[in-house]
Simulated scan of single mutants.
Amino acid sequence: MLKYAIIYENELNEIYQKIILGNEKYLYWDHTYSNLKLKLRENDWEYLQLVSIVNNKIIGYINIKFDRDINAVSNISAISFDIGNIYFLYDLLASVDLIFCKRNMSKIIINFYKKNPYAKVWELFIGIFRMRYIGYYENNRKLKNGKLVDELVFEIKKKSYLKIKNEILKTKDANHNIRLFQKIYNKIGVNCESML
């Protein structure tokens, strides 16, 4: 279930500091330096910051950056504190649905780093939603270990997303990934009714 992150600010920062800081698994989250606390905004004009909650426990954090000049989301940062928990994937998809259904954004631009072991989630989204490849930036981000990594950029427009979502919901003979997304849509509701 998605909730505003600011409501859980202390608990979220405690989890963030315990799990993320200094942990090599999360090397791609921190980049060159670490913020010792997440900067949570008191409004959702520029950023929509959410936590994923299961059984009253924070399992993830999603940070959505708006570019109001072009009515788009210019990036989504997502981090799971409970890697492998399928409910975080549900909430990640719910946040995409929220962006288009409730916030009425025209498109989402996603940037991710090529060698990030957790990029598989974004690759799954890109494949399922046939996101358009925008570009590739070589050696665009420096990690704490000094390595430079490449950045890939993709986008999906609202019209395309809604069309593919509708196709997913109508597909009868689906492969594993499509069935997973059908299950997620059935769980989150297809009409965006229970969202922020």
Rank of each mutant, 00 (worst) to 15 (best):
N75A: 03
N85F: 14
L36Q: 06
G146I: 09
I126M: 00
K115Q: 13
L180C: 09
D97I: 01
V190M: 13
K115I: 11
D82P: 09
K3Y: 15
K3C: 12
N56K: 10
I76F: 05
M195K: 08
K65W: 01
I178K: 09
N13T: 01
I70A: 01
E14Y: 13
Y118S: 06
H31A: 14
I178W: 09
D69C: 10
I64W: 06
E42G: 06
V54D: 06
Y118W: 04
E14H: 13
I64V: 15
V149P: 07
I128A: 04
E167L: 13
L162C: 02
E151M: 14
I79S: 05
N139L: 00
V51Q: 02
V149E: 14
F88E: 01
N63Q: 07
R132A: 03
I156W: 11
Y87N: 07
L27D: 04
Q17L: 08
G146D: 07
N71L: 15
Y26N: 10
K25T: 12
N55K: 12
Y28P: 08
N85E: 15
N177Y: 15
I126E: 01
I19M: 07
I6N: 12
K142A: 03
I164D: 02
K114G: 04
D173L: 06
Q182E: 12
S52M: 02
K3D: 14
N116A: 05
M105I: 09
G135K: 01
N10K: 15
R132N: 08
N140P: 00
N111E: 05
Y26Q: 12
Y28F: 15
N55D: 15
R132Y: 04
R68H: 13
N145Q: 04
F125M: 08
